[in-house]
C-alpha cells in the first residue's frame, strides 16, 4: 500500500462551458483503466465520479486541471479548478440542491446528484474550496474496496 510508484499519470485541461467535448477526459480515463486491466465494477465507479467532477467544472467553474494517477492497487484523481468556489459544502452535498442555470438544466444537468454520486463511488473524497478562487476535489479509489459488489438488478 505505502509509497508504491505510480504506473501511470496523466493531466488534462478542462474548459468551462464547453459542452461539446465535456466528458472526453472521463472517457480517456475509462480507456486507460480498461487497458490497465482493472475489474469492470471498479472502473465503473471511477468513471461515474470522474464524469461528475469533470462536468462540475464545465458547468460551475471557468477552467480546471484533471489529474489521474494510477497505482497497482488504487487510483488517485485530483480536479483543481478556477471558479466561484462552493460557499456551503454541506448544502452542496444535499441531493437535489443545485445552482445550475435554466439553460444547463434543459440539457439534463442540475439534478443536484453529482457530489453525492462522487461520494458514493469513491473510497475517500476531499473537497477544498475557496469562494471567489476555486475548488479542489481529491478522490481515491481502492481496488480492494467493499464497494465493488453485485452489479445489475433486473
Amino acid at each position: 500500500m505505502e509509497n508504491r510508484d505510480p504506473l501511470f499519470e496523466v493531466s488534462r485541461e478542462i474548459v468551462g462551458a464547453d459542452f461539446q467535448s465535456a466528458g472526453d477526459i472521463s472517457g480517456e480515463v475509462k480507456k486507460i483503466l480498461l487497458q490497465a486491466g482493472f475489474p469492470p465494477p471498479f472502473i465503473r465507479r471511477i468513471v461515474i465520479a470522474a464524469y461528475e467532477a469533470e462536468m462540475n467544472v464545465v458547468i460551475h467553474a471557468f477552467k480546471g486541471i484533471f489529474t489521474t494517477v494510477i497505482y497497482p492497487d488504487k487510483v488517485h484523481i485530483v480536479i483543481d479548478d478556477e471558479g466561484p468556489g462552493i460557499p456551503d459544502l454541506e448544502l452542496a452535498f444535499q441531493e437535489g440542491y443545485s445552482t445550475a442555470p435554466p439553460h444547463v438544466r434543459e440539457l439534463g444537468f442540475g439534478a443536484g446528484y453529482g457530489l453525492s454520486n462522487m461520494r458514493k463511488c469513491s473510497d475517500t473524497l476531499k473537497i477544498d474550496s475557496h469562494v471567489g478562487e476555486g475548488t479542489r476535489v481529491t478522490m481515491d479509489f481502492l481496488v480492494k474496496s467493499q464497494r465493488d459488489g453485485a452489479e445489475v438488478e433486473k
Binding site: P40, Y51, L107, Y113, N117, K120
Partner: peptide, 22 residues
Amino acid sequence: LSDCIAHATEGSVWITIQSHPN
C-alpha cells in the same frame, strides 16, 4: 444525466428526450 450515469447498465438501450452531445 446524473441519474443515468449512476444507474443505467452496460449493454442497455437508453430511452431519453436528451439529444445534445453530452
